[in-house]
């Protein structure tokens, strides 16, 4: 076990898997010579050469589509999207091809590929570069969609993604790249999809989140404990599809109230799905309606003060917790 950054954990996962299996390769814009906008791929071109670390033109549909073809023929391509905002250009390749070909071929091919890259609000990147996509991809059967919140999960889940048989949308948070955490050294350390975890135990209220908002939720939980004496149980979903809500249900059975936190827009979002599921499954256990904490329903503004207003922070989570606790 060693302390590593989220960024290094991702690079290590890819390099260990490329060492392990020559079918693994990576492509993306400026990942080779330039060594990556976020320096995730630093040193990889030198080690693996241009056939396995492919600098592509700025052509997301081309990258995603060629990766589907490679995967159907047995390779395990990783596509780095400079940011997930650009992957919208490849929506047809991802949603109509990667996610569907197994089904409409009656199961004749595997599509082992990973599309990974950062998403979410940064610092003053404005409307086109600050979006999150778990809700978007989470809607489509045929994909796996994961949102690791810690360096250990980033590494373990990326290895699971690379070793799997299905297209995986691997959503990183640029804001977490510098975050440090303990990461197991075992070369075969993997984290399975579809197993959420209790990130913090508590008895009074359940906070359900994932990705960067999980970290914000944990900070809010500490404040609630120190300032209000409220012990929040925080659930880290880890993957959005497959979605494992069993620990959330178990927690709600104990606390009788839930707050779901997501970074972006409220309408039809992941939080709505989770809140609805909790209501369906745990109706008779709820002492208050499930609350959602989400970003504001606007494109991301540029001005820093407006940007901060547009995204959720601890105070909103604390307020929502107090509301479901009837403490407001």
């Amino acid at each position: 076990m060693a302390e590593k950054t989220y960024r290094d954990a991702i690079r290590e996962a890819m390099m260990e898997e490329m060492d392990r299996d020559t079918n693994v390769l990576i492509m993306g814009e400026d990942i080779g010579v330039y060594e990556g906008t976020f320096r995730i791929t630093a040193g990889m071109l030198k080690k693996y050469g241009p056939r396995r670390v492919i600098d592509t033109p700025i052509a997301e549909a081309g990258m995603a589509g060629t990766a589907v073809g490679m995967a159907m023929l047995g390779l395990r391509p990783i596509v780095e999207m400079m940011t997930m905002n650009f992957a919208i250009v490849a929506a047809d390749q991802i949603l109509n091809h990667a996610a569907k070909v197994r089904y409409f071929s009656g199961g004749q091919v595997d599509v082992p590929m990973v599309i990974r890259g950062p998403q979410g609000a940064g610092v003053q990147l404005s409307a086109q570069h600050s979006q999150t996509f778990e809700t978007f991809y989470g809607h489509f059967p045929g994909l796996a969609v994961v949102t690791p919140a810690t360096p250990a999960d980033a590494k373990g889940m990326l290895k699971t993604a690379i070793r799997g048989k299905d297209p995986v949308i691997f959503l990183e948070s640029a804001a977490l790249y510098g975050m440090k955490g303990e990461v197991p050294d075992d070369l075969d350390f993997t984290v399975p999809f579809g197993q959420s975890r209790v990130a913090r135990e508590g008895s009074d209220v359940t906070i359900v989140s994932y990705g960067r908002m999980l970290q914000v939720s944990l900070i809010a939980a500490e404040k609630l404990s120190n300032d209000e004496g409220i012990e929040a149980e925080v659930i880290d979903l880890r993957s959005i599809r497959p979605l494992d809500l069993q620990p959330s249900y178990a927690s709600v059975a104990k606390t009788h109230r839930a707050v779901v936190v997501q970074e972006q827009w409220k309408p039809f979002g992941a939080a709505a799905e989770i809140a609805a599921s909790i209501t369906e499954e745990m109706f008779d256990d709820l002492d208050a309606p499930v609350a959602r904490v989400t970003g504001e329903d606007v494109p991301m503004p540029y001005a820093r003060n407006l940007e901060l207003l547009a995204t959720p922070h601890e105070p909103q989570i604390i307020a929502a917790v107090k509301k479901v606790m009837y403490h407001d």
Partner: peptide, 19 residues
């Protein structure tokens, strides 16, 4: 989806040479 599979074919060709 018209034209969508052209990228797949291109990637498949790469895979065949890669292998």
């Amino acid at each position: 989806i018209v034209g969508g599979h052209l990228t797949l074919a291109t990637g498949a060709a790469y895979a065949l040479r890669y292998q």
